[in-house]
Design a protein around this nucleic acid. Structure first.
Lengths: 157, 157
DNA sequence: GCGATTTCTTAATCCAGGTTAATGCTAAAT
DNA sequence: ATTTAGCATTAACCTGGATTAAGAAATCGC
């Protein structure tokens, strides 16, 4: 474990790296954010004193988030403890990773995009639950989902 | 740890309970959802075979989520291991809890409501970062945030 | 099998929030 | 001190998705 000082504006972690770290804020303020395909920034989380911030994902998955510094800060950095992944912590990490993905989607994708992402990610579930529940999961009304699907079907004929 | 069979439609966990459990799905399909103040249901998560589902919050906090059964299922139930909270897992739980709250907010609250919730929950951060970043965290544009705040100020004079 | 209930779709209308653009405001940067 | 660049606000207009309503299709209960 290592302690560093970071200046306002400094970038601590980029999107797309493999061995991301966990940052614990002693003083100051960090934030994590994603950038969508239109170049728009979405703040995922603020981390003031006492908070921990990291991109949570499996060990072989590239990071989604940038992390930078909003105020001069003192930060302790630790490795994502790989030993953790063996015991009862793995399911927690998985849930964190899914939730992180979900927040990013809710903030940066339109309803159609969220639906198509859902289709790809959980193809087995689509068959098993009523449309209205999928709509609810996506954060839209069943009517809106119906409209979207109709539009898409027409588009592709 | 205990293994039970649940029938489609059965409710496993209600909102507002204190000692919530962790459900691990052996077979079948569960879901968790919240109900907002307008009575609208928002699905938080689906959990098919192999998934773990739970309301993640501190040990003294009431649950936010309902959990029920979408297909006849076999589920193993475990206590939220309190020992976990002592060691290095506590920060993970905290992050999960914050993210869960965040997803619920993005799905059930309007922009004004999200802003007012943010004001209450992170009063210290509002002073420290530019408006545009708060807008980004809330998932709206700076212009929209400005509009909202203007409207609210006018309303209260 | 048959009526009842729930689900899905379509269409018309409405509104929260997005987009664009113009105008000050503040704060670095030279 | 003056340019420059980012930030906040306001206003006019646009659009994605909500709402409402009503009919068609699927599913459930008996």
């Amino acid at each position: 474990m290592e302690i560093i000082e970071v200046k306002k504006g400094e970038l601590l972690q980029e999107k797309g790296v493999l061995n991301s770290k966990v940052y614990h804020v002693q003083s100051g303020l960090l934030r994590s954010y994603s950038i969508d395909e239109k170049g728009k920034e979405h703040i995922f989380m603020f981390a003031p004193e006492g908070w921990t911030i990291a991109d949570t994902n499996g060990p072989d998955v590239k990071t989604e988030l940038f992390i930078d510094c909003l105020e001069d800060s003192v930060v302790s950095i630790s490795e994502k403890n790989l030993k953790r992944e063996q015991n009862n912590v793995a399911p927690l990490i998985k849930r964190l990773s899914v939730l992180q993905q979900r927040v990013i989607m809710l903030m940066s994708f339109s309803a159609i995009e969220r639906y198509e992402h859902f289709e790809k990610t959980y193809p087995n579930i689509i068959q098993r639950v009523p449309q209205r529940m999928i709509a609810s999961y996506l954060g839209i009304t069943p009517e809106a989902l119906s409209k979207i699907k109709g539009k898409r079907a027409r588009r592709s004929t």
